[in-house]
Design a protein around this nucleic acid. Structure first.
Lengths: 257, 257
DNA sequence: TTCCTTTCGTTGTAAAAACAACGTACTTTT
DNA sequence: AAAAGTACGTTGTTTTTACAACGAAAGGAA
């Protein structure tokens, strides 16, 4: 109990706020703590919630069910982590996953409305930033997943990492299985494709350290050259029809083209 | 000029706010209007912005450049549409697209900080809702794209639409090419797969009206049966390692498993 | 109606991926 | 140090997809 606010201090929502201030804040926000015995459901598919949750003790497990009825663990939640904030931020959004207590757990629930009304600018900024930041990550993932071949998926991902790290040689935060899962491809097939890409002189790698040999110049200090050769094909039928990353930037989700 | 606030009325950010109130609001928010001649750049890849934009006149075009340097049109923006709100909501987020004026255009720019400070609860709620809602859509798309085969992608998507419409028979908002683009598969291959699924008795369709024949009961009135057969395989290595929809629900983007 | 365009399904072929199985190298445990 | 476990690459086979090309059907415009 004494550690509770120290754990909350680690939550992305409260980044930069001291434990003692969090304590006051939670009072103003009418935060509610609930206990969940091991094996119980914290949230169920089909639920609607107006509160976001922060795990303060124990461990949770996010489980989905796909169209065939197979259940898959999406992720594990550890103390200090925020969850359900997206569903809580959309009116009447139906939760599409189950959240189960993997161990005896405690969750601090905060109503999003309370944050907006009484949380203060800093907290609201934080919440908005967390959700918008997740948005960027999802978009990036879609950009990779939209590629048709494993090679293209890999190049899309590796190019992104290269640009982010600002160097042709960089480390990735995945092992092979993790990367294959992230790109939704078969591990061994991906491994084979990596080999072929190395053979073709596109990349080099050892363990999780990759080097990408692009065509354009790449100044280690300044990032990708602005003169990187471009194949501008805006007016091709394919380009005009492509909805590759629809909604990445604006709000066109109508599905019409 | 006189129509300006009527156009803004249609913006998702101001849903439910009258044109006259918007006029006052924009003043308080120190909104700035800028003109962009046809062919000029509204935003460029690599930029950072602290303002979201609303197009009030003209037309914009969102263009990306992929790892190979090919430029693709992601979407077109019409008057009343919001854009760049996600990048503007994340501190120092680097914009990954170009925004070009397709015609002579006017954009109303609003600083996100102004919205948070002076926009009032309603506007902040709206902004948060828009971004969180987009988040849900992106997650859904990732769920479909993560499927390995075209058949699975289709079933994932069609099952979602079925549940959403609450009926085995439903219309989808895509034509074939649109659906293929959304699922990032080849149109003709998808068409062929749809035929096979029809042959196999999984689905039926005519034009954009589909019927899905699942195994479980499906009560037209009440939605999917809670007793839908489940194949719970939580403890399989595959399930435990799958990062299929990582970040859908919580904030595990570390990439580590 | 006739012509033209768009949409959709079909087919064959070449390319790519999934899958399963296995060997090796590297780590961790005992 | 030996044993056990894990991560990674490789290979061969089967399945699936992309791609290109084509024809039929539907819808619009002249």
């Amino acid at each position: 109990m004494e550690k509770k606010f120290e754990i909350l201090e680690k939550c992305s929502l409260f980044r930069g706020t001291k434990a003692e201030d969090i304590e006051n804040l939670l009072g103003n926000l009418h935060a509610a703590e609930r206990k969940y015995p091991k094996g119980s459901f914290v949230l169920r598919q089909g639920d609607v919630t107006d509160s976001l949750g922060i795990l303060t003790e124990g461990a949770l497990r996010i489980v989905t069910e796909d169209f065939a009825g197979n259940r898959n663990i999406i992720s594990e939640i550890e103390p200090g982590e925020l969850f359900a904030e997206v569903f809580a931020s959309v009116k009447e959004a139906v939760i599409s996953v189950d959240v189960e207590a993997e161990a005896d757990s405690r969750v601090t629930w905060i109503k999003v409305r309370e944050i907006l009304e009484n949380g203060g600018e800093k907290l609201v900024t934080s919440l908005l930033g967390v959700i918008a930041g997740k948005n960027l990550m999802l978009n990036r993932k879609i950009e990779h997943l939209s590629r048709r071949s494993t090679r293209e998926k890999l190049l899309s991902y590796l190019t992104y990492e290269m640009r982010r790290k600002g160097s042709r040689t960089f480390d990735i935060p995945f092992d092979r299985q993790g990367l294959a899962d992230y790109l939704s491809v078969d591990r061994s097939a991906m491994s084979a494709e990596l080999s072929r890409m190395k053979r073709d002189g596109l990349i080099d790698y050892r363990k999780s350290r990759f080097t990408l040999y692009g065509e354009g110049e790449f100044d280690e200090a300044t990032g990708p050259s602005p003169d990187f050769p471009r194949n501008t094909a805006i007016h091709s039928a394919k380009a005009e029809k492509s909805g590759i990353i629809e909604g990445q930037f604006c709000n066109n989700f109508s599905g019409k083209r």
